[in-house]
């Protein structure tokens, strides 16, 4: 794989060793300040402390499920939660990663394509938080035993050079983009059988587990309809176009800025925005070689160890 064309601001650009459990390793180099908390999370006055306790406990359960690669029952099966509470759980679970010295690396968008909506039956845009502990080295193997039931999906990643927050124009979005890259995201729902409600999946950080980015390109061409081929062991399993991501991936970046603004966590220079799956996700199995080729963008790959 060619070296990134634009590497200066790449988060955690230092080579990671092929750690056994890349997604769970503590980061060694702080990159940004831990995100400041949102101030507007006013829970219902009655029973506030009990809900708070629940939120922390639910976050711990999800974090433990991820660390131990053991699925849990979906929250909504026993505990009704609101979307707002689901995002609080997500935030608490990420805070637990921060305690293990992981650092924020960006944001991921979910349910941005019709194929994903059809696959999961969920039609609202969602977002999750990325940390440097989720970064997978390009070309390196992942350890299959550290996942529950991982799937992979082809995406496009944005690398930011300016902060973005709130309602922004396409021009402001474009101006903040340092580079774009073909990317693969590994999603691994912490819920049994990959079954969840919208609130469940939001609490579970949008199923985020790991991501790997390919060569960075200066976005001086239209990336709104780039063909892509996702292959397992050289055989195509998904063929599509970046147009699947909300019609144009830049729209996903604009939505990410809006979500980040609402959460009081502006997108920061050096962060990555994973724009969302361009096709349905494909289940991973041990021993696979996973590769994404994208028109004008090169390729990105990783292996799955048995």
């Amino acid at each position: 794989m060619a070296a990134p064309k634009v590497a200066a601001r790449k988060p955690a650009a230092a080579k990671k060793t092929a750690a056994k459990r890349p997604a769970r390793r503590a980061a060694t180099k702080p990159m940004t300040k831990p995100a400041q908390g949102a101030k507007k999370k006013a829970a219902k006055p009655v029973g506030q402390s009990r809900i708070k306790t629940n939120i922390k406990a639910l976050a711990r359960n999800l974090d433990k499920a991820a660390q131990e690669a053991r699925p849990i029952e979906q929250i909504s099966a026993t505990t009704p939660i609101s979307l707002d509470q689901a995002y609080q759980i997500q935030k608490e679970a990420i805070a637990l990663r921060m305690l293990r010295r992981e650092q924020r690396a960006g944001i991921k968008m979910g349910f941005t394509s019709r194929a994903k909506i059809a696959q999961m039956g969920i039609g609202d845009l969602i977002w999750g938080r990325l940390t440097d502990g989720m970064i997978i080295e390009e070309g390196a193997p992942i350890d299959f035993s550290t996942y529950i039931h991982p799937r992979v999906e082809p995406e496009i990643a944005f690398l930011l050079k300016r902060p973005l927050s709130g309602r922004i124009t396409p021009m402001q979005a474009m101006e903040a983009v340092e580079a774009i890259a073909p990317a693969l995201e590994i999603i691994d729902s912490r819920y049994s059988n990959f079954k969840f409600s919208l609130e469940d999946v939001v609490a579970d950080n949008a199923s985020s587990s790991g991501f790997v980015t390919g060569p960075w390109q200066i976005p001086d061409f239209d990336f709104g309809n780039l063909g892509l081929v996702l292959s397992f062991n050289g055989k195509p399993v998904q063929i599509g176009s970046t147009a699947a991501i909300m019609g144009h991936p830049l729209r996903s970046l604009i939505a990410a800025a809006r979500f980040a603004g609402e959460a009081g966590e502006p997108l920061m220079p050096g962060w990555i925005v994973m724009a969302g799956g361009a096709t349905a996700a494909e289940p991973l199995v041990a021993g696979q070689y996973v590769e994404l080729e994208m028109e004008n963008m090169g390729r990105v790959a990783f292996g799955v160890s048995s």
Partner: peptide, 15 residues
């Protein structure tokens, strides 16, 4: 890349 639309609604995607 290929995208086919009806009134802006995607009806087919591919490459």
């Amino acid at each position: 890349g290929m995208v086919m639309e009806r009134r802006g609604e995607q009806i087919s995607l591919g490459a």
